[in-house]
Design a protein around this nucleic acid. Structure first.
Lengths: 190, 190, 190, 190
DNA sequence: AATGAATGAGCCTTCATTCAT
DNA sequence: CATGAATGAAGGCTCATTCAT
């Protein structure tokens, strides 16, 4: 809340926008500091490298995304099935923009081939959490189903979500998300 | 077939490997020419720009992928359902490598935010064709189903394939492809 | 007249246009061969280097300019004074174009600082001849004037011509040529 | 005055020398930074492009030339005619060097064919000012002459100056400047 | 904290020329 | 004669990072 955090936050916010809209490697430090209206050195007062900023982008971005998603899903109280379906409505809202850029994590995944690097660990962690979140809702919805059944359903819903994201990004349409949503309804109704 | 084409092919092959393994923007002309063991100028005798080479990579890569996939599916003769399922076996084969890099098109998608650029057009075209390919198999499998039904099933299978690709890439496991495969079997059995 | 000479002539003509309109150093071999629609190697069958072509441009260009100028002045028969004045009318005709590029020799002079190089020798030779041409007309017009007087008048006319050329090029107007012409009339009338 | 400005000044001075002596296009950034003994990146800390440096060269060069000329002419107090004649003495001083390169503006003019580019605007502005300077001296010298008469005389003197510059550059002699000077004396005496 | 000058390896691309066909 | 692939130095410029102030 102080000036201190504000400055760092401002850099992260500005950079997050650029990284997401343009890509990580294609976005240079110069562009970031100009957009944030700070000096070169100031940037390195707050981040020891571009990668550190990139990690912060991924971390905060996922936190924000999760928080907003959860806030959106709250309206569905304790109805896990409706929540799972609503997940795709939430996705569709974000994808409505004419130049939808998909999922920051998946985009960064394409740009960071090194398996062990911090970026990849962050991506894996985030995606693992997302799958676990879906799984927990499936578990709530079908408490009596077998473990394997629930894993299959949760996995399928997760894949449909990922597929819908990249398809919406590819075609710049929300159609794929509709398809995914309908399929999820079927999966939960079976 | 002559020496002439060989040199250009060699550049494309070397570059395709690097683009796919490392990413497009992170791969420099210098690295490409060193890997291909040619002079800087030689590169520009064959390609008018890096982008042209990138487009050639996408074009040839998709051609090759489609050809190999079709060759693999031939063994299933005129059984469209088995072909659709086998699609995921084929995918799993490619994903077995310890550092699976997913789909070149989707990776490039993440790196090219400009909607109208040639890269994006190539990606859209390729993905549209892939969806159409799945759709034609679904049509063959369920000739009596309604158009909307077939669209939904084909769409879902397509999304599962995309999702499985990025998930396998994220986690470096073929597990997601197995999940997708099982789900496709259900979709076709309904 | 044969095919042989035609090809070489074509290169010279195309290059002359480009050198004059754009400048010598800024015009690349690639642009020349593309404009002439020939292969890289073909160029070097006819010229051993870019410089040789440049020299040929200057040589032929001055020959052509002199020939056209003389043809234009012929109408003034044996009236040297009118010829000297008409020289500026001729100059004005060339300078009427909206993006007048002045004198190829003077432009090349600006681009070739090396005093002893062939280009500079060509320029010096051409300018010496031009001054001598003016001098001969002055001599015809004022056969009884002293040598020093005629040298002064011829020199001044020459300088006015050079000045008018670069001024017309600077301002993209023919006004300076009119000024020069009037001054020459005064110089000859004294 | 501080260290900061010194570095930038140093680059400008080094580059000005090279641009003037060799030509603009033929002088590379590499040569400039080597002569200035700085790193590539340092250059671009101070100038956003080669063109910006080129413009600075023209701007400072003309400022310096004008200042030195005015300082030289001061000795002639309020005698405009003597000042006009002395202009050519001043010119001759500069042209005495064995490899006289003439006027930076006219040389740059030869290298920049694009009418609207900043370089051309700078050149036009400078030349317009020079003509206006001559005109003001002519006006002082002949306050009772008609406007047209003064315009003609000033114009002729200007053209003689330009002509003398390029002729001295062409022949590497100051002779043409002497001729111009004598002619100017006549023009003012009439 | 904040600054911005300095670095030099690297970016993609063009240069004039050669040479085997 | 004509071709166009091959060369590698050079073109102008950007990169992420450091450091003295």
């Amino acid at each position: 809340m102080t000036e201190k955090t504000n400055r760092k936050n401002q850099i992260i916010e500005v950079a997050s926008k650029l990284f997401f809209e343009q890509g990580y490697h294609v976005t240079g430090i110069k562009q970031i500091i100009e957009a944030a209206d700070i000096a070169k050195g100031t940037f390195y007062c707050h981040f020891k490298s571009k990668e550190e900023l990139g990690l912060e982008w991924l971390r905060r971005g996922s936190e924000k995304w999760i928080a907003c998603r959860n806030a959106y899903l709250e309206q569905f109280g304790d109805e896990p099935a409706r929540k799972l379906v609503a997940l795709f409505d939430y996705q569709a809202k974000g994808a409505a923009a004419c130049s939808y850029r998909g999922c920051a994590m998946l985009n960064m995944l394409a740009e960071s081939p090194d398996l062990g690097c911090p970026m990849r660990q962050a991506i894996r962690g985030y995606k693992k959490d997302f799958l676990a979140f879906i799984r927990s809702l499936v578990d709530q919805h079908l408490p009596n189903a077998s473990d394997a059944d629930r894993e299959q359903r949760a996995g399928a819903i997760y894949l449909l979500s990922e597929g819908a994201t990249v398809a919406a990004q590819s075609f710049c349409k929300t159609g794929p998300i509709e398809i995914a949503k309908k399929q999820v309804e079927k999966i939960l109704a079976e």
